[in-house]
Design a protein around this nucleic acid. Structure first.
Lengths: 175, 175
DNA sequence: CATTAATTTCTGTAAAAACAGAAACTAACC
DNA sequence: GGTTAGTTTCTGTTTTTACAGAAATTAATG
C-alpha cells in the first residue's frame, strides 16, 4: 500500500505514542495503518508498507488482537488473512479502556485485596498504613463499578453526557 | 524505614504496575513507599528502604515531581530534603490524568491538527483517509473539553456523579 | 571563604525489549 | 501424499532503557 506524506506522518506519530503507553512502535504503527486504510490488509502488504520484518507483523497483529483492536476479515478468493480495525474512535477507546482495565486495574485490585486481608492479622503494620491500602482499594472499586456501568451505555448517551460537561452538577444538586 | 511484609508486597506490586504504564520500577516503588509512609522521607531513607542507588532515587524523585505526584516537605532542623505524596487516591488519579493528557493527548492533537491542515492542499491522499484523521482529532477534542470541565468540579460532585453510574441516563432522557 | 553535607549530573555497565531472519509448522490444492 | 503458499515460533543481534558508582555541583554553616 502506498502512503502519502500525511499518512506517513500520522503513522509515525502514532508509533511514537504507542511506546508511551506500553505497546511497541510496530504494534502502534500497524494499528494506525489499518485505521487509515480503506480496506483490510494482509500481512505481506503491512510488511512492505511499514518496512518491518514479516515475523514482526505476525507478532504485532497477535498483540493487537489480544486488545480486540484488530479482527480478521477474510477476502473472497484469497487464502491470506486480511486484517482490519474499527473506524470509530469511540469503539477504539472502549477497547483500549477494557484492555487497560484487565491488565492494570484487575490484577492490582486482586493484590490489594490480598494485602488488606493479610494485614488484618498483622500486628507489625501500623493501622494508618493498613487504612491507606484500603483507601486505594476502595477507590479502585469505585472506578471498576463505574466502568462496568458506563460500558453498558449506548454511545449516544455517553456523548450527550460528555457534552453536558460541567453542567452535570446542576442535575445533581437539583436532585 | 522498616517495611513489614504487607508493605513490601504492596510496593513490589506497585513497582511492577509502574512498568506497564511507562514509568520505571524504581519511580513507581518510591511513589508507593511515600504513599504508605506516615511522614515525609529523605532520599537517604528511600535509598536504604528500597535498596537502590542514591542517584537513582534522585532521578526518580525528579520524575515524580514532574508528574506533580511528589512535593518537598522541609523538616525543621534538617537540611536534607524530605519528600511526600498526596494520600488521597482521587488527587493522585487527577495528577496522573493531567500528566497523561500533557504527555499523550496534547502532542497528538497538535500533530493531528498539522495532518488535517496539510491534507487540505493535498491531492494525493484520499478523502476518506483525511476524514478519518479528522474523526480522531474531533474525538480527542471532545475528551479534552470534557477533561477541562471535570477538572474544575469538586471531588464530592464527581463522586456523586460516578456513584450515580448508569442511572445518569434517566436525567438525560428526562431533559 | 573554606569546609562539609546534600544533591544532581555524568559515564559505563547490566538488563530488558524490539526486532530481523531462519526454521518450523499448518493447511490448502493438485 | 507431495508441493507450495501462508503463518507462527524460535534464535541471535541490535537498540533501548534502567541503573550503580563516580565525579561534579550546589548550598549551608562556622
Amino acid at each position: 500500500m502506498k502512503l502519502t506524506p500525511v499518512m506517513e506522518k500520522y503513522i509515525l506519530h502514532w508509533g511514537e505514542m504507542g511506546t508511551r503507553w506500553g505497546v511497541n512502535r510496530t504494534v502502534a504503527q500497524i494499528h494506525a495503518l489499518l485505521y487509515l486504510s480503506e480496506n483490510p490488509l494482509n500481512a505481506e502488504e503491512i510488511t512492505e508498507t511499514l518496512g518491518v520484518a514479516r515475523s514482526n507483523v505476525s507478532t504485532s497483529i497477535k498483540e493487537l488482537q489480544s486488545w480486540k483492536l484488530v479482527k480478521n476479515e477474510p477476502q473472497l478468493g484469497d487464502r491470506r488473512e486480511h486484517f482490519a480495525t474499527m473506524k470509530d474512535p469511540w469503539e477504539l477507546f472502549y477497547a483500549i479502556m477494557e484492555g487497560r482495565k484487565q491488565r492494570e486495574l484487575d490484577p492490582t485490585m486482586s493484590v490489594l485485596r490480598e494485602c488488606v486481608l493479610e494485614s488484618e492479622a498483622d500486628k507489625s503494620t501500623p493501622e494508618e498504613v493498613k487504612q491507606r491500602m484500603k483507601d486505594v482499594l476502595e477507590f479502585m472499586e469505585i472506578l471498576d463499578t463505574w466502568h462496568a456501568q458506563i460500558k453498558g451505555l449506548p454511545k449516544s448517551t455517553l456523548l450527550k453526557l460528555i457534552k453536558l460537561g460541567a453542567k452535570v452538577k446542576n442535575f445533581l444538586t437539583k436532585k
